[in-house]
Amino acid sequence: MGEALNISLSLTHTHKHAQSFLTMEYVSPEGLRLDGRRPMEMRQLRAELGVVSRADGSAVFEMGNTKVIAAVYGPREVQNRSQQINDKALIRCEYTMANFSTGDRLRRPKGDRRSTEISLVIRQTMEACIMTHLMPRSQIDIFVQVLQADGGTRSACINAATLALADAGIPMCDLVTSCSAGYLNSTHLLDLNYVEDSAGGPDVTVGILPKLDKVTLLQMDAKLPMDIFENVMQLATEGCKAVANYIREVLMENTKQLENRRGV
């Protein structure tokens, strides 16, 4: 008798488990996310400049487990003469994901839809801040590669590209920084990771020019009520500003170091 009861108990237990898997709990009752962050908390940021020795500018940018490397070549002579623009610089961008960047190792064809789209997004975002009219008849190449993907690769790529461009000494009217935010379990979440990203909820990626206080990128692939959307976007903008502060610090430190080493 006692045994039978035990079995039925364990049965209900497994049943419950299966249910919670279907409608997963992204924020625990204690207000913690799956990776232990608070809803309004960003992941750890880390940035390093000058990682590619042959490039004019380069940077590695990490947001938690997402890791992206960016390299900038140029301004240099336009490779394809027919693309040359007479009054401004031509900007090209290439986004790739390393085969080893995700959990399952995939061979990724070059130029698939997703990467073409992100290349375009990054190019347009960077074009908005580079002062292209100062470098006529030249070309700037931006290469970004995802080394570890854990959600928010789009934002990480934009941040890395900004750092690399600043490292290359290319004049920009402002830094572009980007961050994502979402809405799951009726909670606003900042800086989604892969699990939260693939939950199917709304994922808002925002890119801003912090000094000019302008938005250069806004993407969302789901529906959200207007009032919630405003809050989510506000949250993402706050995230962008935090990233901007960090990027400024890194650039400042790097500039000081270069100047001190150079000496008089």
Binding site: D56, M131, G169, P171, M172, C173
Partner: peptide, 30 residues
């Protein structure tokens, strides 16, 4: 560059002043 009446740097570098002229000397650039 100028922004809201302020002079703003567009590159990373060191501020140099020669009389009225203000410019930023870049370090790592072409």
């Amino acid at each position: 560059t100028e922004l809201d009446g302020e002079v703003v740097a567009t590159v990373c570098g060191v501020i140099e002043r020669v009389n009225k002229l203000v410019y930023v000397r870049t370090l790592r650039a072409r």
